[in-house]
Design a protein around this nucleic acid. Sequence first.
RNA 1: CGGGGUGUGGCGCAGUUGGCUAGCGCGCCGCGUUUGGGACGCGGAGGUCGAAGGUUCAAGUCCUUUCACCCCGACCA
Length: 418
Amino acid sequence: MRLSHLFTKTSKTVPGDETARNAQLLIQSGFIHKEMAGVYAYLPLGKRVLDNIAQIVREEMNAIGGLEVQMTALQPQELFEKTDRWDDKKVDNWFKTRLKNDSELGLGFTHEEPIVDALKDFVNSYKDLPIFIYQIQSKFRNELRAKSGLLRGREFLMKDMYSLARTQAEHDELYEKAAAAYVRVYERLGLGDSTYRTYADGGVFTEKFSDEYQTISPIGEDTIYVDETKRIAINKEIYTDENLAKLGLKKEELVEKTGVEVGNIFPLETKYTDALDVYYADENGQQQQIIMGCYGIGISRLVGMIAEHFADDKGLVWPANIAPAQVYLARLGDNEAVIKQADELYDRLTGEGVEVLYDDRDVRPGEKFADADLMGIPWRVVVSDKTQASNSLELKARIETEARQVSVEELLSLVKRS
RNA sequence: CGGGGUGUGGCGCAGUUGGCUAGCGCGCCGCGUUUGGGACGCGGAGGUCGAAGGUUCAAGUCCUUUCACCCCGACCA
C-alpha cells in the first residue's frame, strides 16, 4: 500500500476524550475511528490487524476440527424464552429491538441458543457427534459503562466456539483440545509468556471451574494468583483454601498479579441442549443428552490488548505476524534514481508476498520515521541518496535503535523469516 | 445506575467580574526556500462555542432542561 493512497493520517496529538492508552495510540495512528463510547470502527490499518488476529484464531480452531459458521446478529425472543434468558432480570445487557409487527428481537450478545437450535436440524445420532462449531462475529452488549478503549466495548468482535459431545469423557477430551489450541493462539500472538490459564468460577451451570486465559498486564481488571512454575493461575473470585486444595495449588507458591482476560472456556454441561430438546440416539437407539462446552476469544479486545502491551514511548509495536505490514519503506528526497529504486523495491517485495507500507509521500524524513514508529511496523527500510551511494539498503527493526546496511536479498530473508 | 469531570474550526487548547469582528498551536490549501528524526517564510480557507429554552441593551461566559464523552464505583469477553 502506498501511503499517498492511504486516506488515514497520523496525528501529533491524542484525543482528549480517551485516557486508555490502547485507544489513544490506535486513534492517533489512524488505525481505528471512535463511533461512540465503546464502539470503534476499523480503518484500513486497523482492519488488517483485526483480520490478522482473527486469522490466527481461525487457523487454530480449524486445526482441531472446528467448523466455521456465521450466525445472525438478530435473534428471536422465542429461542431465549426456552432457556429462560430473555427476561431483562436474567440478562440485563441486551440490546433489544422490535419488528414492524411489534414482536421483540435481541441483538446477539451470545449464540448458544441459535447454534444449538441450528444443529437440531442435523444432530440425531451418535454418528453425528462430536462437533466443534465456531464463528467470528460482532457481539453487542449494553454495558452500563464502556471503558478501557477496545478492552470493553458495547460492540466487539469475538470468536465463539461450541463443542457438543456424547459423553463426559468425550467432552473433557474436546475441552482440553480447545485449551491446547488456545495456548497456541496466544503463543502466535506473542502473548505466550505472559498469558496464564486461570481457574475461575464455572458460572451457574456447573460445580466445575471454568478456565480463563489471563495476560499479565498493569491495565488488567482481574486479580489473579499465579503459580509461575506450573504456569497456572487462579482468579481472586474463587481464591479460597478449599479451592486451592481442590486444585493442588499452594498459597506460598502463588504471586498476585493483574490480568486482562483474553479468552475463556467453560463447560455448559447439558443446559442448552436439554432446554432446546436436542438429544442423540446411541448405539442402542436410546436417547442421550449432549454435553456442551463454550470457548470465547475477544478478537477486538486482543487488538487493544496487544497494542497496549507492546507499545513504547514512540508508539505501537506490532508482533510481525499481526502487523498491518511487514515493512515500512521510507523513500527520502525526490532524486529520480531514489524514486526509481524505491518503486522497484516496492514491486519486488510485494511480488515476494511481503506486505509493504510504501511512504512515497513528499514529506520530510523526520515525519516518515515518526510515522513508521507510531504505526509500529516491524521493519523500516530506507532508500535515499545515502543508500544509493553505498549501494545498499538501510534496515532498522522497530524494536532496535541501530540501523544496518543490507542487500535486497538479505532484506528479503530477514523480513520473510519474521 | 450513584459520585466526579469535560463539551469552543479536522485534532489539542485559551477565552478574566457577561461587552466590540471568538483567539492560539497543529493539521489543511497556494507560492517560495528546504530535505536523514515531526522545517521555515508569506498569503489563505475553515467555527450557528454540544443542543433546546430563558435572563439581559448585550451570552462562549449567567439560569433551566437535555444530549454526548471521560474517570471512580457497581455490572460484564
